[in-house]
Write a protein that binds this DNA or RNA. Structure first.
Length: 483
DNA sequence: ATCCCGGTAAACAATT
DNA sequence: CAATTGTTTACCGGGA
């Protein structure tokens, strides 16, 4: 690309710090009016949400369904006095917005006026906070049939993010690039009866939908952007609970489909759902002493998270663990994109879930058994499963030759190579093979192993991980020899 | 310093 | 033939 950066890139790069100070609403913090009563209330809400989530999970509802339900809960809660307070300060120490009455309340952030949570007008011409993958995901999710031709994806993006109307046309290339490369997106065989013109329909691969949702939830988006929020100064042993995902951008379909309710999925609540399931075994579950990487996690707390977690500072009934309840969600989009990092002892973790996993894995070397909640073992099992799967993919990639490509070869979420389709085949045939043939046995084996691990979810998960990695290493060697 | 990731550009093939 | 769509590679910058 050279020294001259494309305008779009330029517009984006400084965004994390600079743009946040204008047009965006301030983050939210717990009010100083957090009374014991409201703490209990918060705890109740936490329980309700947890139960709600558990139910949704049990019924295999989509996150949207759960969001609908949780909205009601949050609504009822919002009427009971939860208030926003002092906005966080931006890195310059100045309020991003005057803390006047116009400052949006927490209700606004959670439930209300989208424009107060994200200044739509101001944000319209700013590059959206979402990656292209998220944009595509939202577009497809917004489609009645959950599938869209590229053209309509363009259209959706343009409609919801006017920024792109004036952006350099390269973004369309990026969209196509993403569709092609990202395993989350699947081409759907066109219905012959209704020709849509060129190209095919694109849909979300259910297998990766969770991850896209995760990505959406974790989009570094004001006001919970890690760059803005103040990292937690809590001692690591304090419960870092209710880590929050950023709210959905007000223009998102998820937002609109909830009747204009700005939703966010309080991860802590979700996690709490998992915790509840294990509560019988571990009545007092404390989060892991999280590795330093957890700073990012703590940075993205939302007001409710803080609010609720403060409620927990008192010896609480609720001490949800850090790890996600959703095993499959334990890979985030970006990090989950490379589960190799998820569970690799030497890999960096940039996610709260991953943090747990990291500690888990490291605990093999440096045991910290005392602080490890059951859930983290579950997570660990998931991570181990992911690791195994990824190791499998890695092996396949390694054997795919020098042309593996930096991007395509680096991500689990990339297609073709990671799926082990023969590189010797013409591209189209590779694609076709991917569609026609179910995942290869190796992959399936790994998935089965992963599934087993997920169910094991036991204290020995870490050991399992090691064991399987060893087995995997052998497998990789065999693979290499075969090729 | 290195790796990973997302974004971008570009080349090219396939399709309409 | 042109435009669009799909695939792939290469590179860059930021962040961890």
């Amino acid at each position: 690309m050279g020294p001259t950066m494309p305008p779009s890139k330029k517009a984006q790069s400084p965004s994390s710090g600079a743009s946040a100070s204008q047009g965006m609403s301030p983050p939210y913090r717990q009010g100083d009016a957090a009374t014991a009563a409201s703490e209990a209330e918060a705890a109740d809400l936490s329980l309700s949400l947890s139960a709600s989530f558990s139910k949704a999970e049990d019924e295999e509802l989509t996150s949207l369904s759960w969001l609908h339900e949780s909205t009601d809960l949050l609504n009822s809660f919002s009427h009971s006095g939860l208030r926003s307070v002092s906005p966080l300060q931006d890195p310059d120490g100045q309020h991003s917005r005057s803390p006047s009455s116009s400052s949006p309340s927490l209700e606004d952030a959670l439930l209300g006026d989208a424009h107060s949570a994200y200044d739509l007008a101001a944000g319209a011409n700013r590059k959206p906070p979402y990656s292209f993958s998220c944009l595509i995901f939202m577009a497809i999710e917004d489609a009645p049939n959950k599938r869209l031709p590229v053209k309509d994806i363009y259209g959706w993006i343009l409609e919801h993010f006017p920024y792109f109307a004036s952006a350099p046309t390269g973004w369309k290339n990026s969209v196509r690039h993403n569709l092609s490369l990202n395993k989350c997106f699947k081409k759907v065989d066109k219905d012959r009866s209704q020709s849509i013109g060129k190209g095919s329909l694109w849909s979300i691969d259910p297998e990766y939908r969770h991850n896209l949702i995760q990505a959406l939830k974790k989009t570094p988006y004001h006001p919970y952007s890690p760059g803005l929020a103040t990292p937690s100064t809590s001692p690591p042993t304090l419960p870092q609970t209710f880590h929050h995902s950023p709210p959905l951008w007000s223009g998102s379909p998820l937002f609109r489909k909830n009747g204009g309710v700005l939703l966010q999925v309080p991860r802590g609540v979700i996690q709490n759902g998992a915790r509840i399931r294990s509560q019988a075994l571990f009545p007092v579950i404390r989060p892991l002493p999280v590795s330093p990487v957890g700073s990012r996690t703590s940075a993205i707390r939302s007001s409710l998270g803080d609010y609720l977690s403060r409620g927990q500072d008192s010896p609480s009934r609720y001490s949800p663990p850090l790890c996600s309840e959703d095993l499959q969600d334990d890979h985030t989009y970006s990090t989950a994109k490379s589960p190799s990092r998820l569970c690799s002892p030497s890999s960096g973790m940039d996610d709260d879930d991953d943090d747990i996993i990291a500690v888990e894995i490291q605990s093999d070397v440096k045991p910290e058994p005392r602080e490890i909640p059951l859930d983290s073992h579950i997570t660990s099992a998931a991570a181990a499963a992911n690791y195994i799967s990824q190791q499998s993919l890695r092996g396949q990639r390694r054997s795919s030759g020098p042309g593996a490509g930096t991007l395509a070869g680096s991500s689990l979420w990339t297609k073709n190579r990671a799926r082990g389709i023969s590189d010797t085949l013409p591209l189209k045939k590779r694609r076709a093979a991917a569609v026609e043939k179910p995942p290869e046995s190796d992959d399936e084996e790994m998935k089965e192993a992963a599934g087993s691990l997920l169910h094991l979810a036991g204290v020995r998960a870490c050991l399992n991980n090691i064991t399987n990695r060893t087995a995997k290493g052998q497998k990789e060697q065999k693979e290499a020899l075969r090729n």
